[in-house]
């Protein structure tokens, strides 16, 4: 089942002589439960693509269907709900809310939805993330790896249709990077979570099911990885 369909997506920055085409008429689709990585050199348009799919940036042209709904037609408040419930972003620099502790950061999308959190699910998730004794800690009391795990936890707690991870290991050492990727893989395998991962590291990309390669805003390669 297609969870994501991108058609003729273009993003142009600036105008006239100073314009830059970050994405040039790209089209692709993603099935539910896929673990897709997007690789390319700096300036290839990877992050731009992710930001557009995450609803925090608008395309210049093209359509994006998520769960058969065109997100280009959504209003600002509908987009906010889309970001909260459908597509969750994980950033390179974690982007945790510094005044909220670990528990509050993880629960944030649920709280923004005015829902009562599932305490059992929260506990499991925190346990899975290895943050049992850090529940009440603030982000500035955590290491980089721990912070990224909180960011992932926030993402997964919301139970979105798609997780969009923009260089989640870009700021981490090898050990933590591996831990993060393992976590994502585990979630993908266990819960059929659809994940789109942007990375410049080919080794990380090879751990995913499918690799989309971008160059100068165009998809130059789309290959499926077969793992035993």
């Amino acid at each position: 089942m297609k969870i994501l369909e991108v058609k003729n997506l273009t993003k142009i920055y600036g105008n006239n002589e100073n314009s830059v085409k970050a994405l040039d008429d790209i089209s692709f689709s993603v099935e539910k439960g896929e673990f897709l990585s997007i690789i390319g050199a700096s300036g290839s348009g990877k992050s731009t693509l992710l930001h557009i799919l995450g609803g925090i940036e608008k395309p210049s042209s093209g359509t994006i269907f998520v769960n058969n709904k065109d997100i280009g037609t959504l209003t600002d408040s509908q987009l906010a709900i889309y970001r909260r419930r459908t597509a969750q972003l994980i950033f390179q620099f974690y982007n945790l809310i510094p005044i909220l502790n670990v528990k509050e950061n993880i629960l944030l999308p649920i709280l923004l939805d005015y829902k009562n959190p599932d305490d059992a699910r929260l506990k499991n998730l925190i346990s899975l993330l290895g943050l049992q004794d850090k529940e009440n800690s603030l982000p500035n009391q955590l290491s980089g790896g721990q912070q990224q795990r909180v960011a992932i936890g926030r993402c997964l707690m919301a139970n979105p249709s798609i997780v969009l991870a923009d260089e989640p290991t870009g700021n981490l050492d090898t050990l933590n990077s591996n831990e993060i990727i393992t976590l994502l893989k585990e979630y993908n395998t266990k819960f059929q979570q659809t994940i789109l991962l942007v990375t410049h590291d080919i080794k990380i990309a090879k751990q995913t099911n499918r690799i989309l390669t971008l160059q100068d805003g165009k998809i130059i390669k789309d290959e499926v990885q077969i793992h035993e």
Partner: peptide, 13 residues
């Protein structure tokens, strides 16, 4: 930046 992050997570205007 903080407000932008909150919006990215799904906070509405």
């Amino acid at each position: 930046t903080e407000f932008a992050e909150l919006k990215a997570i799904g906070m509405s205007n």
